[in-house]
Simulated scan of single mutants.
Amino acid sequence: MGNMQINITKCLEKKAKPATEGIAFGRNFTDHMFIADYTEGQGWHDHRIVPYQPISLDPSAIIFHYGQTVFEGLKAYKSEDGTVRLFRPEENFRRMNESCDRLCMPAIDEEQALEALKALIEMERDWVPSAEGTSLYIRPYMIATEPHLGVAPSLEYKFMIVLSPVGSYYKGGVAPVKILVENEYVRAVAGGTGAAKTAGNYAASLKAQQVAEGMGYAQVLWLDGVEKKYIEEVGSMNVFFKIGGEVITPALNGSILGGITRKSILEMLRAWDVPVTERRISMQELVEAQKDGRLEEAFGTGTAAVISPIGEFSWKGETFSVKDGEAGELSLKLYDELTGIQTGKKDDPFGWVTVIEEKATVKQ
């Protein structure tokens, strides 16, 4: 993002902060936001932190018509000593650039993007909730802003970061969910945009999710888009299965998003000497493992829930229980360990956490 100097405009009147208890996800936003503009030939410029506000775009801006956009999602946590902590933020900005490359969008300077995020959070430190299970959700994103009704990469962009305090994902402890295996709709295929974090992937998933919810299921389990045979993702999360003592997760194949939580779970399991494999796994194999009693646990991983145990899945009209519908021992251990690292309740042997101290930042 070039030589970055951040201009700051403070809001004149600060918002009332919502009560932490029962706060809805993504409905409340902090007082300020970060914006940078990109112009072809000039690069990134006009880096600024301004009061949170609507943005003005030309009606023919490319984002509205051709969907050229990418985004990320991560969290800031307040530890018991009052410090604010980021979990592997450099991984999010690295992945954002991978998404940008797929969507023909300009790369951001990852180090400077992280500095911009730190500066924004330093201003909004009071917005980071401290109650158990709460956090400040961070949404960096980029949109194509050039006014042009033509199918071509935009020559102008905005990169923005907004912040939203969020409550605990689990209100009464980690609870397993019921999922519906999707046999009709397709989320993504290899060679498409499934490995990028772009809006179109999520728009394509809404119909199946709506159908699943109408049938009483919390999430959709997506199969590959060609044979509809191999497991890919669950909802907007990566998915893991413990079968006969071995943990298996679908290998990244070009249509699966490489989750930061997924990567962290794999690294933790290997550090614990738990057998773990990244490979293709079919629904047939999963069902056979369940019927043979070898399917010990199943769980999704993602920024919002961290770990979401799966207690039941439905495929082709049949229902299959996982661990009698209860959360598994490994799932709970992973959740406890990872959230402990994020919030500072546990040591960080991997060096994943960046601590934002008052007026300074240090890598732990």
Rank of each mutant, 00 (worst) to 15 (best):
I6N: 04
T9W: 06
L12H: 09
K17N: 02
T20S: 10
A24D: 12
N28V: 14
A36I: 10
V50L: 14
P51E: 06
Q53S: 15
A61M: 11
I62E: 11
I62K: 11
Y66P: 01
G67T: 08
T69D: 13
K75S: 07
G82W: 13
F87M: 03
R94P: 00
M96D: 00
N97M: 14
S99G: 11
S99C: 01
E111R: 13
Q112H: 09
L117H: 03
L117F: 05
E122V: 09
A131Q: 14
T134K: 06
S135A: 15
I138Y: 05
E146S: 11
E146A: 13
E146Q: 15
H148M: 13
L149D: 09
P153T: 03
E156I: 03
L163E: 06
S164P: 07
S164G: 05
Y169P: 04
Y170R: 08
V181P: 01
T198A: 11
A199M: 07
G200W: 06
G200V: 07
N201S: 02
Y202I: 11
A208R: 04
A212I: 12
Y217P: 00
D224Q: 04
D224S: 11
K229Y: 10
I231E: 02
S236N: 04
M237E: 04
F240A: 09
F240G: 06
K242E: 01
E246Q: 00
P250F: 00
G258F: 05
A271G: 01
W272E: 12
I281A: 00
M283G: 06
E288S: 13
Q290C: 12
Q290N: 13
G293W: 08
E297Y: 07
G300Q: 01
I307P: 01
G311R: 01
K316S: 10
E318H: 07
F320D: 03
V322T: 08
G328V: 07
E329P: 08
D336Y: 04
L338Q: 09
I341G: 04
V355S: 11
Q364C: 14
